[in-house]
Design a protein around this nucleic acid. Structure first.
Lengths: 202, 202
DNA sequence: CACGTTCAGCACTGATCGGTGCCGAAAAAG
DNA sequence: CTTTTTCGGCACCGATCAGTGCTGAACGTG
């Protein structure tokens, strides 16, 4: 996308765009889209407002780029979990990753995809809808994976991949809310374990 | 508290305070604390800004009063569920109530206690913290009830009421997030059913 | 009647919102 | 060199934010 293919005429950028985006992500994660002001963002990113606009567009685009970074960073556990050999292991790793990411020491509690913009006024409609699509994409990925497990036999043919996928996603969303409210990693891992007690046997 | 005990000198209030508070609750529920502006609130409540301040204080107090109304209204299922005779029935009714309230036709999707202010800037700190306490109060109430069930024998002595209470609350929170993203009542009731599949036998 | 309160409405405050314009300087490419 | 781009900084934009002051009338009580 933004590969350094251009000839780069002119003064080069004086800050690390990835670093700045990381800081923006952390602030959006902690305070939400509406709760993070441009003034706070430029302080966190360590650059001026002009540089921010030149590099990332406007606040909405900045959030969406921060979300991309969140997806391949703190939320990367979701993709890794899909590569597990059985549905049970997928679900186990997905929830464990959700717990770990939501309670990362020193990082914001919870999930950016949940609390970034769960409900907003009209000004945040695009971001809110984008996050809803983002979350549903995770559910759809689990669904595909669980369908594969039914085909391969590590989920019984009587099981319903639709329900299982939404169930796992619902527990993960709940874990994010709990973490945002101060629940600890140990407490939430116990919840994740409890949630998998009824997983269909192979 | 606000019983009509005062002699009521002067012109009587020209609007129904309960009605107005109901409309404020619905807007906060739909758009969150930061996302609902005073201009939108006065339009929804059908009163002027002056009357709103005279009757409810400021925006923060208005939200907290709307939360009280939410608690005894759309969230009343939580108290009703606690009166069920067994822990299993408590959990079943709690989750079913969460599903119904989060997907009420014509009402805002989700749970005001979750999306009202899950993460905010500094301006919403009080409201955000209050909601976290509110949610944890629900968990604590479930915990007390499940401890009672262990004593009474409808939960096995080996079960952990702490984990069970947080598990039920986590699933309810996840249901709220799912509903906010557009999940239907039927889909979420299936999730609630799945969540209870592993409930400890009496 | 007078008194006290609320009415509707509108202008208004200071602050902050997201977003721009302009500046001269600095640093790269050609 | 010139050209091009970004730099830091700061004033500034119109709009909106939460919250207030003021007005004159309406409507109750004693």
């Amino acid at each position: 996308m933004d590969a350094p293919q251009k000839a780069q005429i002119g003064r080069p950028r004086g800050f690390d765009a990835d670093d700045a985006l990381e800081q923006a992500m952390l602030l959006f994660w902690k305070q939400g889209y509406e709760g993070a002001s441009l003034t706070e963002l430029e302080a966190a990113m360590g650059i001026t407002r002009k540089s921010m606009y030149a590099a990332f567009g406007n606040k909405e685009e900045l959030f969406l780029k921060a979300l991309q970074r969140y997806t391949v960073g703190p939320a990367a556990y979701s993709f890794e979990s899909l590569r597990q050999p059985t549905a049970r292991q997928v679900a186990t790793m997905f929830l464990a990753g959700s717990v770990r990411s939501s309670t990362w020491p020193g990082g914001p509690a919870g999930c950016m995809g949940v609390q970034g913009a769960l409900s907003t006024g009209e000004a945040g409609r695009v971001v809110r809808d984008t996050l809803a699509v983002w979350r549903d994409g995770g559910r759809a990925a689990l669904l595909d994976r669980f369908r594969q497990s039914v085909d391969e036999g590590d989920l019984p043919p009587t099981s319903d991949p639709e329900v299982l996928a939404r169930y796992v996603m619902t527990v993960a969303n709940g874990i994010a809310v709990q973490a945002a409210g101060g629940a600890t990693r140990e407490e939430l891992q116990q919840v994740a374990d409890a949630a998998l007690k009824s997983w269909p046997p192979a």
